[in-house]
Design a protein around this nucleic acid. Structure first.
Lengths: 355, 355
DNA sequence: TTGAAAGCGTTACCAG
DNA sequence: CTGGTAACGCTTTCAA
């Protein structure tokens, strides 16, 4: 039989409470008694209080739930997501808390069950589509929920986010100011969750990820303001967030006779992929075709990629803090983080005339 | 007050057991009663049995522990690690289990505490150095532990691994067969955990990650056999597992007058970085300098990188299965996965004479 | 098909 | 500084 608190207590000849204190409240007993208890525990092979029992008693699971979907594992390929996760873990560490990745089955009922069974103190909604069955289940738990979208509908929801639309609006205006009028968007997750890949989505409100939706809206606003026809903007929806996806997405627009003079991507890795595609065709980013990314990952600087910078680790850290220590006031519950357009060599004046 | 099983039971006028059965054993009560209970629960805002209490009672935490260290978050940048994690989550999903990422503080005592407090059914030791304080704490928990190193010392340890030395031995022999005699190794995690970066490690047994150690040994064996002087092999230890690290590592050897004719890396991302470095110098991989990677990530094929293929997702999946359902026999507890040397364009005959 | 009772291993409170 | 007592919320026999 596995040793328990009681086992140790009996061995030392003290009560359970005292053994418990030896672990959780060292100041409640003499150092020497504590040492005696700890030694006895070691000898008995007792590894400390059972975390589950402790959780039950304390009313604190000691973990934050993060749904692990296909989308999220794609997202992990992006340095941005990994830094966000690191930020989250920073907050978690400070609160002696873990990050529970919850594998989400495809079957809707099983997905809901997975959420209901998760022993967590709150959820971080990261990469879960608006209509996903698990999403509703999350809210039904009645636990704190944090997201990365400031505009999320649910008033209960905590958020650490940026003004996505303002960010891409600035980027879009940067391009039109440079004279670009034939533009294309290359992005992942631009389709409604259910519909097949390739579905054309043009209206921001049709996009099932709120962040992506807002980014699309930002470009729409900027370009309409500059007099461009939104229907003429090429929108390419690629599968997955990766450099390769960027290469493929760019391929769909670069080989046309009237290829765009500017490409914008919704992540730096995709943008870097489009730059690869340019290079492969002997085109130069910033001269022949301008490129803008999103996130400002370290590689963006090296590649001279113009992009929207957002504080990745900080976003995760604040999300974690909000979750683990929710502010009382409504204003405190949504934290807006700054973004900045970082102009580098990948954007330049639109080339005149035909290519 | 939050509703509990009892609340629902009282509302419907049945006993706790019946409500419990409504959730966990639908066959134990009439469908109509079950429906009545579930409806009442929904109305009361009861989201289902408390996972922590259920865990305590069942004696099953419902999670696998994975230590989240700096090293691991670096590793996430590698598609290999992400696929391993996906495999792990596949097994977890099948067992209705989560993956608990445990942020590990720098302070040794705090690190041990983090391990002791984790509510898990077992640990997956991935990217935890041999001498790390948390590592010992893991074994003290007395829970199943799985690793990716077949040769791990502890006989209790489960493992899903490959014959690392055999894998790199084959790679090393491939190079010497092509006539290479001036070779270099570029790798991450080649230093003892404690010592500062830049420490020169040459003996495999000095490397604190068993897998890395064995890979080093494989090259040592292959090259010694071919008559090379191991002391003349350049070994570059880079920080982090990334393409950039590969670029920097390669830079340390490519600009020398007697630069090596072949470079081997311990991961594909680093190898791809070294190929970037070659390109930047107008050198061609496979003609001027041969390059070998490890893992065979998708990008390797595109880049024409010769590499050692290992089944990433499968490794994770099997690790998970071993942990969640440990085999009775000692032989069953260590699963060896196959590797294969995939020869592509990045390796070719050694160029003769001086560069 | 249902219910009563006995824990699962811990921690918090309060009296000594 | 120490120890008794009472939960924490659930599942699982076992008997009705």
């Amino acid at each position: 039989m596995k040793p328990t608190l009681q086992t140790v207590a009996d061995a030392v000849g003290v009560s359970r409470s005292t053994v418990s204190n030896a672990y959780g409240r060292p100041d409640q007993l003499s150092p020497e008694l504590r040492e005696r208890i700890l030694t006895a525990a070691r000898e008995l092979g007792y590894a400390g209080p059972n975390p589950t029992a402790r959780s039950l008693r304390r009313g604190r699971a000691g973990a934050i739930g993060v749904l692990f979907t296909d989308v999220l594992s794609y997202a992990f390929r992006d340095p941005f997501a990994v830094r966000f996760l690191q930020g989250l873990s920073l907050a978690a560490e400070r609160h002696q808390t873990g990050l529970l990745l919850i594998p989400v089955p495809d079957d809707p009922e099983a997905a809901r069950a997975a959420v209901r069974n998760a022993a967590v103190d709150g959820f971080c909604v990261f990469c879960v589509a608006e209509g996903h069955p698990a999403r509703q289940a999350i809210f039904e738990r009645g636990l704190p929920v944090v997201g990365t979208e400031l505009l999320a509908g649910d008033p209960e929801m905590l958020a650490a986010g940026i003004d996505e639309a303002a960010a891409t609006r600035a980027a879009g205006m940067h391009l039109t100011a440079l004279g670009h009028r034939r533009v294309a968007i290359v992005a992942d997750m631009l389709h409604p969750a259910i519909s097949p890949l390739g579905t054309v989505v043009r209206e921001p409100s049709d996009v099932s990820y709120l962040g992506e939706s807002e980014r699309l809206r930002g470009y729409q606003q900027a370009w309409r303001k500059a007099g461009l026809d939104w229907d003429e903007v090429t929108i390419v929806n690629v599968r997955g967030n990766s450099r390769e996806a960027g290469v493929e997405g760019a391929a769909q627009v670069l080989d046309r006779r009237d290829r765009p003079t500017a490409l914008v991507a919704f992540s730096d890795v995709i943008a870097l992929g489009t730059m690869d595609a340019l290079r492969a065709r002997g085109l130069r980013a910033g001269r022949d075709v301008s490129v803008i990314g999103f996130d400002d990952i370290p590689q963006a600087a090296e590649a001279g990629l113009t992009t929207v910078r957002q504080p990745a680790t900080e976003k995760g850290r604040i999300a974690g803090e909000l979750l683990l220590d929710p502010p009382a006031t409504a204003e405190g519950r949504r934290v807006a983080l700054p973004t900045e357009l970082i102009v580098r060599a990948s954007t330049g004046p639109a080339p005149d005339g035909r290519n």
